[in-house]
Simulated scan of single mutants.
Amino acid sequence: MKIGLFGAGRVASALAPALAAAGHQVVFVASRTLGPAQALAATLPASQVLPQAAALAAPPPADVYLLAVPDAAVPLLVGAGQWPAGALVVHVAGALPLAVFASQPLVRGGVLYPLQTFSPGRRIDWPGVPLFVEAADPDAEATLLALAGSLSRRVALLASPQRLHLHLGAVWASNFTNHLLGVAHALLAEADLPFELLHPLVRETVDKALDAQPSPYAVQTGPAVRHDAPTLAAHEAALAAHPAWQALYAQLTASIQAAKRMAEGK
């Protein structure tokens, strides 16, 4: 397929090479800033670079126009584009509904949501990445299923409300977890301790949680679930210099204890 790509950030930079490797042609990369777009296009065969405004004013022919841009920018691009009648315009966001295309009745809207975290320099194993598809009509759905299937062996249809809940769960599992690891890194650094000390613990925690039945709650450990009051108090006192982290510690402790009470039917 011929793909018109809007965006040159993390998702676009991971997705474009995968599309090219799967045999598709990224005919253009459009971005508000040309530097990143030029760097991305240089890695792709026969791909031109366009300013975003020019690409929106006169989109070059493509089978799919892919909007790999921040969520807040998607409605703006959808509304500003002089899209050819019947154009298949697709966003990659987890939290945006298909209804975001309602302002353009001549456009066939679609979603291609990769359930993965993207960072520069990290290799993505695309065949293992779950890709979720939603589209406004059967033909668009078939096109996106074929496109997704060329990248991944884990492809499924998913409606907007379920995709929103999936994205919310992903934020808890990935983004919040990463933030908590950042807090742990900072606390160890304050004591001149290397973060690597936590690596075996973190790996075992994640592996155990992924294997747990019926849910990760079943394998919860630590002072909160044990109601170890002296340790909890010592920890909160040690966080006195970080009131935001201290409050977060207390909230997470309360949440863990509430989950245990619920599991015990109390």
Score class of each variant (00 low, 15 high):
A229F: 13
P194W: 01
N178V: 03
G222P: 11
V155A: 00
T205W: 05
S152V: 01
P161E: 09
G222A: 02
E196Q: 13
L164N: 00
A209M: 02
L187R: 02
A191Y: 01
A224L: 03
L144Y: 08
D192W: 00
D139M: 10
F176L: 10
S160I: 08
H199Y: 13
A148H: 03
D228M: 09
G222N: 07
T221G: 03
N178E: 07
A209V: 05
D139I: 11
L232G: 05
Q213S: 13
L157W: 12
L232D: 06
P223I: 02
A224N: 02
A148Y: 10
P120M: 03
A146T: 15
R226M: 01
A234Y: 05
R203A: 15
V202E: 03
E204I: 00
F132E: 08
A209G: 05
V225I: 14
D211K: 15
G182R: 01
E134G: 04
R123N: 08
A212Q: 09
T143F: 03
A229M: 13
Q213E: 14
P230C: 06
R123V: 15
L164D: 01
L181C: 14
P161M: 13
S215P: 04
V129A: 08
A218R: 12
A233V: 06
R226N: 02
V133H: 09
P216I: 04
T177D: 10
H235E: 04
W172V: 12
A136L: 12
S215I: 03
A184Y: 00
H165R: 15
E141C: 12
A189G: 00
H185F: 04
